[in-house]
Design a protein around this nucleic acid. Structure first.
Length: 272
DNA sequence: ATCTATTCCTGGCTGC
DNA sequence: TGCAGCCAGGAATAGA
């Protein structure tokens, strides 16, 4: 499930292959394309040149010579580069998009693969409104701004999942950050003591940096654009460890539902 | 305004 | 063994 570290890894792995390339042809399954964009997307992309690729939150922004292509990988989306369009491993029923690039060099194609089809792609004249309403980048936000934004009566876990609060933290890294900070997921954000808020700010940045350094977490089938797995899942201390002993105190990790999301925490290390 | 529940989707797992 | 049924969840949206 691509969150900030996974999307960052995808962008880093794909950017060197795409910058400066011309899109000869683009084809998509309708479901992959944001509604309202379905009739015109392929036509708008043909002939465009890719200027740069950046990550913003969990979104991938491809800046073109005309407009911006915005991609969200959803739960199971992946971008893959390939020398040719007929690589057997990349052309199954889950391939929902294909960009044919100029023939001046390899890779010749960029493919979008997504079994659960939660990912979306859209073209907008400038930055997508979906991206514009994102909150700050977790790796850039200062402690002061973070503390200021915490002043809300929401449960801290729910707030971490809110992309207009912070952009890019999802279920895995919310649980891991709260564990690292020793904060209960149901704690009310605005009532966190200053030192605990500071610990959370620090934990989020440490966890995300470490996850990026490991190439992200490969929970199910996540791989980067070159097909490489990430390894941060072996470092998880809370997420996906229900019933297993806490790596700090040995207490079984508990799983509850917060904001409709499975939430893993240590009841002893993360007190309310 | 703010929070909660529902929807989308399929591979993988559980249990009978 | 086989298969029905459930679960996972990011973001949009409808509802409270």
């Amino acid at each position: 499930m691509p969150e900030l570290p996974e999307v960052e890894t995808v962008v880093r792995s794909v950017a060197p292959h795409l910058a400066g390339r011309r899109i000869v042809e683009a084809r998509f399954d309708s479901r992959f394309v944001t509604p309202g964009n379905r009739k015109r997307l392929a036509g708008r992309l043909a002939g465009r040149t890719i200027e740069s690729i950046q990550r913003r939150g969990k979104f991938i922004q491809v800046t073109l010579d005309q407009g911006v292509l915005t991609i969200h990988l959803g739960m199971t989306g992946s971008l893959r580069v390939s020398a040719t369009a007929d690589a057997p491993a990349l052309t199954g029923v889950h391939t929902h998009g294909m960009f044919t690039l100029d023939a001046t060099r390899e890779p010749g194609v960029l493919l979008y693969i997504d079994p659960r089809q939660f990912g979306r792609i859209e073209w907008t004249p400038s930055v997508s409104p979906r991206v514009a309403r994102l909150g700050p980048e977790p790796l850039e936000i200062t402690l002061e701004e973070f503390v200021g934004r915490l002043r809300r009566r929401a449960r801290v876990k729910a707030l971490l999942l809110n992309q207009s609060f912070l952009a890019g933290v999802g279920n895995i890294y919310a649980d891991e950050s709260l564990f690292a900070a020793g904060i209960h997921p149901l704690a009310i954000a605005a009532r966190l003591k200053p030192e605990r808020a500071e610990r959370l700010h620090c934990a989020i940045q440490e966890i995300l940096r470490a996850a990026i350094a490991s190439g992200g977490s490969s929970i199910s089938d996540y791989v980067d654009a070159l097909g490489e797995r990430g390894w941060f899942q072996v470092e998880h201390r809370a997420y996906g460890r229900e019933g297993e002993p806490c790596k700090v105190c040995g207490t079984p990790i508990k799983k509850i539902l917060v904001a409709q999301r499975g939430t893993h925490f240590c009841p002893k290390c993360q007190r309310r």
